[in-house]
Simulated scan of single mutants.
Amino acid sequence: MASKTSYAMFLIKAIQDFYYEKEEETIAFVMLNVKGRDLLAIDELTENQNELEKEIFPMYQMFNEGKERLQRTPFRNVKYFFPYAKDMAAGTYAHKEDVEKALSEKKAKFYKYICDETEGGDQNKIDLLFSNIDDPQGTMDAIITYIVNGEGQFTGISEWNKLLESMGHYTKSGRKDDQSIPVASWRKFYRIFKKVYDKNAGLFAARVDSKKSETRLCESLMNIQPNDCFVIDIAKLDEEMQAFVFGDVMRSIYDLKLGAAEGLGRKAKEKIPSKIIIFIDELNKYASDDSPKNSPILRQILDITERGRSLGVVLFSAEQFRSDIHRRVKGNCATHAYGRTNAIETSKADYQYIPSTIKSMLTRLKQGEYVIQNPTFRSLLSIKFPKPIYKQYKHG
């Protein structure tokens, strides 16, 4: 539970520093900010000079052993992506002056989702909004296929409100057109979609204006460059929209590595990063044992954990309780890092191969202390790592 995000960020910072000037093997990073302003100033040095001089820099010096591999600087090449909202405060926990400063320095954009059949719009991603909905009969999936294929009332739609109107048409009793999908299923689908749409009206847009620092998230991700560090803010979005954005991020990165960037602005000669690391906190929201088996986001996560390595897509994740995570995700994880946890958690089956002395240690670890498990090492390792070198905001 303690310092899980800080440890992941320390590893990512070390990786960026190590590969920053390499030309053959390049890396880019995509992080999702899920709590407050946690990751919204990672390109700024911490303001605590006492910690820097007495705690952080000495540890960096020890790690370097005379070679400046770990830079005494915050993250480089950072770009922030904030959810668009007419009232900026409604979309992000970031302070207005901080967002405006990032925009003026050309290191921030607002992301939107457009509905446009002719431009390969984002209506093709609406399955991601139903990732946590049980659908044993497959009726939600059938509706999604119906919409994405442009059948019936869904031909030539280029606006979200028109899409919603077309959904509403199929919720009416007594209509005489296609009735292959029950009205009750359409009503459930309409209700779920309308709830998300009404809450996030700013994000579901008619168009994107690049002159106002607006972008489609998938287009920005498709154009990610070596050493880029993208921070996508989803902290203030509701749970369904968070899942939608996270699913869009994974799908876009996967499509990029599979060669689907054509037509989204990427130049043919631009080198795609050899590896792209995606970091998400609270992974249990999207990949728990309780997630619906038909969840498109769970399928995407499983695909990345089982086959992403061959494509150069690496998933870093953090969660409070390892036992909550889907067994196939854990089974394909090369490195496990354990911070302080409680005795109830360590009594679960996930910890049956961990010696009792180590289990007892896990309940007493301090911040900055972790136990690492990796096939490279014959036994578990106890480690310490420095506090974040970047600026952190106090919650509240």
Rank of each mutant, 00 (worst) to 15 (best):
H336C: 03
H336L: 13
A337D: 00
A337Q: 05
A337I: 15
A337H: 01
Y338D: 02
Y338W: 07
G339D: 00
G339Q: 04
G339T: 06
G339R: 03
R340M: 11
R340I: 02
R340Y: 00
T341R: 01
N342E: 06
N342Y: 11
N342K: 06
A343F: 07
A343W: 03
A343Y: 07
A343G: 01
A343K: 14
I344S: 10
I344L: 07
I344N: 04
I344R: 06
I344K: 10
I344G: 03
I344M: 05
E345V: 13
E345G: 06
E345P: 04
E345N: 08
E345K: 03
E345L: 09
E345D: 09
T346E: 01
T346H: 02
T346M: 10
T346P: 00
T346V: 15
S347Y: 00
S347K: 11
S347D: 12
S347V: 03
S347A: 15
S347C: 04
K348Q: 13
K348V: 03
K348C: 09
K348E: 10
A349N: 12
A349E: 12
A349I: 15
A349V: 13
A349G: 03
A349D: 12
A349F: 05
A349K: 13
D350Y: 02
D350I: 09
D350H: 05
D350R: 10
D350W: 02
Y351H: 07
Y351C: 06
Y351D: 05
Q352Y: 06
Q352I: 10
Q352E: 11
Q352H: 12
Q352T: 11
Q352A: 14
Y353A: 14
Y353I: 06
I354P: 04
I354T: 14
I354K: 09
I354A: 06
I354N: 07
P355T: 13
P355E: 10
P355A: 11
P355R: 11
P355W: 07
P355N: 12
P355L: 11
P355Y: 10
S356F: 07
S356K: 15
S356I: 14
S356E: 15
T357H: 11
T357S: 15
T357E: 14
T357P: 01
T357N: 14
T357M: 08
T357W: 02
I358Q: 05
I358D: 02
I358E: 01
I358V: 15
K359L: 09
K359H: 03
K359E: 01
K359D: 02
K359F: 01
S360F: 04
S360R: 12
S360P: 00
S360K: 15
M361E: 13
L362S: 08
L362W: 02
L362H: 06
L362T: 12
L362P: 04
L362M: 15
L362Y: 04
T363D: 04
T363R: 04
T363E: 08
T363F: 02
T363I: 08
T363W: 01
T363M: 02
T363G: 05
T363C: 07
R364E: 13
R364K: 15
L365T: 06
L365F: 04
L365V: 07
L365A: 05
L365R: 04
L365H: 04
